[in-house]
Design a binder for these strands. Structure first.
Lengths: 408, 408
DNA sequence: AGCTTTAGTTTATTGCCTGAACTATATGAG
DNA sequence: CTCATATAGTTCAGGCAATAAACTAAAGCT
């Protein structure tokens, strides 16, 4: 069940294909095969040979490199009727990466081992709205250092990290171009300070994109093509195509929150007019539903909305129905442009799904008939920690795709 | 100027990376380097070595294979001041592919040599509207056979072909899923019959996608990321990202004609509501402008529209302005979803550009400020033969990317 | 003519994968 | 208990492709 088209020159450079590239490519192929085995099952070298098409001899040699680098380890035996049992292999549980998230109401970190298990997680409530970047990053660094220390005591080495933020990030690296709800514009982050001396450094992700990757890993239906819609204060999106995040040429694809859904609608913080976010963002829904309570916490307001919906209060119901209808228009456009037929609702869209679903499906039927089957409109499987887990998972994945970056 | 990230296992299969894959990858790398040199300049082996990063020895060996396969040939000498002159190389002018197109009002074929020169072209007017597929394909086969014979007399061998049709095609191959203006639904085409015994067979393309690829090849600005919008009876689109056609997971990305631009608008032939095509398709514009002449030819109606516009007739001007405004809404959505910042107008959008441009730019400013610079909204460089040339070019390109399919 | 410069080829070396033979370790039959 | 069988994993010779460096080829310059 492996099937990646093995590319040789991993690191995207202009290097021509040479013989050594084959080694790198096949290291990633073998490591990817190990990573893709179902959790709990530990493939043997022979099984990997079967899955990848490489010979047993090659796999043995490649596995040896990965063992030496400490990326994988041998674990137990796989008896199988007759014959010598295979030696189980798994991604090393003593190597890990750190997922980190900065959001409007909190900062959080998690340590995830290479096999994808969450070893530690810590959330700190913190009002980051309109807070400058440095103190936020300093607080995050303290949190990260503490968790990293705890991981060290468990004998786990943190190799690198991923940081998710609710805004557009510079795909090249360490710059947040705009994060309206944090009040950040073109902010350069000192990512290295978050995890000093980590072998792989820290990568920066858009929150919705990271959450989309977490969905990819945890989807029960195993979908490999979908749009993840993240409903927070803003409305974000992450497009997954062929089990890869699709970011577009500039790195900011999937901005479903700013698709025009009401040409004569209101102004948006992005400068546009009639964007989905002006109808279906949290603030917009709260206001339209009449539950906005300035000063109150966001989760309290959400509780009030849910209560109003349960009570069948017309204003609340109408607000959510309008949001659902407009979400449908945006998803219809997405289906036409990137030819996606599957949607995962996250954030408040997941919470409000019982009330949102029918107007959404009606809208999709009206504007993009036949493009989305109703069973392809689903709710997030990972919940509120999606961005955190996705940021970590993405770093693991990039290591799996280029293991030579670590020793070897 | 070469820089493709060289992938080893070209043919997408599950084959693991072996040593021989390096050879295939580098054959494509060398051939690509030759193909990308400006027309008229013929690179030497040494120049290719510099461009690709391979050593002179490797290039010599790879070039020998390509010469043996007849894909390239040596042509003249490149003196350069001191030193031994290099031997020029170019894609073989005695090998060619055939571009073919079926459209509403005509069928056409062209023979294009591997260097991209159009050797022969033939257009046959024919009313294919609501014509069944077999007679159309039979007529096309006759036209193709004639042109192929003429090419043979020039000493040119036709290796394969590409066929462009105005509808959604099955990415796997030979099926037209739906072509509303031909009246075709789920039609299987016997492509092999078009070019019997051609080494590479015949590939099927969507018309707008093929035209987008032709734009890519002929753009004066060298843009490698853009949306091509094809205005015909229907409105189609082709998305080019990183010099590659982006087709999405199902193969039908870029359907800009069916983005919702007027949520309370009219019904569309696709079953949707308020699609761009209902406002900006040729029939819609003609009707709104009051120049619809049933029975008259399409080009006569277009002339009437241009005359009305030049005369400043309010109804015609308003129709085009409305189309431009709605086109802006669709392009705004595209910018958000795939993060594209450049648009090429084709078909009637190119013809109407003088009247369309201002309302389009105003609309983009209103709905997606900052996403498209006005100089990134341009008119097609290839004109009406885009689909034809693009279909041929795409087949050449696939040969360049996998030269081992031919002899070698 | 002879020096310099650049193009292209030849040769030895290296790295990696493959295939086949070989060793290791389990189950099951007699 | 022992031997046949089956499967896992390793070792070793062979081949292919790229590299580096030396070498040959063909021009201009003095």
């Amino acid at each position: 069940m492996v099937m990646p088209a093995p590319a040789v020159a991993g690191s995207g450079g202009a290097a021509p294909g040479s013989v050594g590239d084959v080694r790198r490519s096949n290291l990633a192929l073998v490591l990817g095969a190990i990573a893709e085995f179902p959790p709990g099952t530990h493939p043997s070298r022979a099984q990997i040979a079967g899955a990848t098409g490489l010979t047993k001899a090659s796999v043995s040699s490649l596995v040896l490199d990965l063992l030496d680098a400490g990326i994988i380890r041998e674990i137990g035996l796989n008896p199988q009727g007759r014959g010598r049992p295979g030696v189980g292999l798994e991604l090393s549980p003593s190597r890990a990466v750190m997922g980190m998230e900065i959001n409007v109401d909190y900062i959080s970190v998690a340590v995830v081992d290479l096999a994808g298990r969450v070893l530690l997680r810590e959330v700190q409530e913190r009002d980051n709205r309109n807070s400058p970047d440095r103190p936020v990053l300093a607080a995050l660094a303290v949190l990260a250092a503490g968790v990293r220390g705890a991981a060290g005591e468990l004998g786990v080495e943190v190799l690198g990290g991923g940081l998710a933020v609710p805004g557009l990030v510079d795909p090249a690296g360490a710059r947040v171009l705009t994060a309206p709800n944090l009040g950040w514009v073109n902010v350069h982050l000192d990512l290295a300070a978050l995890l000093p001396e980590a072998a792989l450094g820290v990568e920066l992700f858009n929150e919705a994109n990271a959450a989309a990757l977490a969905e990819l890993r945890h989807r029960p239906d195993g979908a490999s093509n979908f749009l993840f819609v993240s409903g927070e204060v803003g409305v974000g999106g992450g497009i997954v195509i062929g089990s890869e995040l699709f970011t577009g040429p500039g790195g900011h694809a999937g901005e479903v929150g700013h698709i025009v859904v009401e040409p004569e609608g209101g102004h948006c913080s992005c400068g546009g007019t009639g964007c989905l976010e002006t109808v279906a963002g949290q603030d917009a829904i709260f206001a339209a539903a009449g539950v906005a309570t300035d000063g109150g916490s966001r989760s309290a307001t959400m509780s009030a909305l849910l209560q109003a919906l349960t009570a069948g209060e017309p204003r609340a119901v109408a607000a959510v129905e309008r949001a659902g209808g407009c979400l449908g228009i945006a998803l219809a456009a997405t289906a036409r442009i990137v030819n996606i037929d599957s949607v995962v609702l996250g954030g408040h869209f997941a919470v409000l799904e019982p009330w949102l679903r029918t107007p959404l499906l009606n809208s999709l039927q009206k504007y993009a008939p036949g493009k989305y089957a109703s069973e392809r409109v689903t709710v997030s499987a990972v919940g509120e920690f999606g961005a955190l887990l996705g940021a970590a998972g993405s770093v693991i994945r990039s290591l799996v795709e280029a293991p030579h970056r670590l020793h070897a």
